[in-house]
């Protein structure tokens, strides 16, 4: 078994060394490009166009009415609140976690990394149910919370908690490889020259990682606004109160209110487009910075 696979591997290596990707015949390259484009247009571009045509099918007035409906506005507001709380918290946490993991050695580091990855591995529905089990009326803290008139699930705190949970790893996961690659030479130099911890953080570490950080923030924000599963479990679906934009889209769709559903969906799609543009810009910046650095060194 291992013999055959290793010989396959050497065969493969031979092939690769004989014909590199760039020297493939033109028709193979074109077939690959066209397949990719077809695939992309079929699965990404067409649905995107469909969202906007459906949204505007009944005219621009209906579109605006759908977006300025009190329930829609409250859904938009709640989505923004959830993102406005989840993103900064995860920003602080992500930087702290990445800093600790990339720049220091300590016991249990691999456990910490695994824990940070947990929200990626756990289904969002389970994430929501965890909070129901903990904070629900029949849950661990249910009667205490109820006695003190503090609502977590089926209210805004639960939605924020669920959002934080699912967006937890994005920033840390973005920063850890970057910080590890950068090493700790600059920080050590700063320390030797007498800089305090805060000075090192603000003047060395943060400027070095700012583009990676921004990239992480963009991804976190996109996911925070688009999250459906976990939020759906803890929301209670009260219109005008605990519905986020994705939940509102589902409700409108289930009420046969298609143009309104797609109008709200188009806002989310717009957000995705803005995210993509920002993401490309940041990637371009990062690439430019990297090549600049190479020139300098």
């Amino acid at each position: 078994m291992s013999n055959s696979s290793s010989s396959q591997y050497s065969n493969y290596q031979n092939k690769v060394s004989h014909s590199r990707a760039t020297s493939e015949p033109a028709w193979i390259r074109w077939v690959l490009i066209i397949t990719t484009l077809l695939f992309l247009s079929l699965f990404l571009f067409v649905p995107l166009v469909a969202v906007f045509t459906e949204a505007l099918r009944k005219g621009f007035d209906t579109y605006i009415t759908a977006l300025t409906d009190p329930d829609a506005l409250s859904a938009i507001k709640l989505t923004l609140i959830a993102a406005a709380i989840a993103v900064p918290l995860n920003l602080v946490f992500g930087v702290a976690a990445a800093w600790a993991i990339a720049k220091f050695e300590f016991k249990g580091k691999s456990i910490l990394i695994t824990l940070i990855d947990l929200p990626f591995a756990v289904s969002p529905v389970i994430a929501g149910l965890i909070y129901v089990l903990i904070f629900g009326l029949q849950g661990w803290f249910g009667s205490y919370l109820s006695d003190h008139d503090f609502k977590v699930i089926f209210a805004i705190p639960g939605i924020v908690l669920a959002t934080i949970f699912v967006t937890f790893p994005f920033i840390a996961r973005e920063l850890i490889p970057l910080m590890q690659a950068q090493g700790k030479d600059e920080e050590e130099a700063g320390l030797v020259l007498g800089a305090s911890g805060w000075q090192i953080l603000w003047r060395i570490t943060l400027p070095n990682i700012k583009w990676g950080l921004l990239y992480g923030v963009i991804l976190t924000n996109a996911r925070a606004m688009g999250e459906f599963g976990a939020v759906s479990v803890v929301s209670g679906h009260i219109r005008g109160l605990t519905n986020t934009m994705p939940l509102h889209v589902e409700i409108l769709y289930n009420e046969y209110n298609y143009s309104a559903a797609f109008a709200v969906a188009s806002l989310l799609a717009l957000l995705a487009l803005v995210t993509l543009v920002l993401k490309s810009f940041v990637e371009w910046k990062v690439a430019r910075n990297a090549s600049n650095n190479e020139h300098n060194s």
């Binding site: 904070f135 029949q138 249910g142 089926f154």
Partner: peptide, 8 residues
């Protein structure tokens, strides 16, 4: 189920 879990 949601009401039992505290949807008030």
């Amino acid at each position: 189920r949601a009401i039992i879990d505290g949807l008030d």
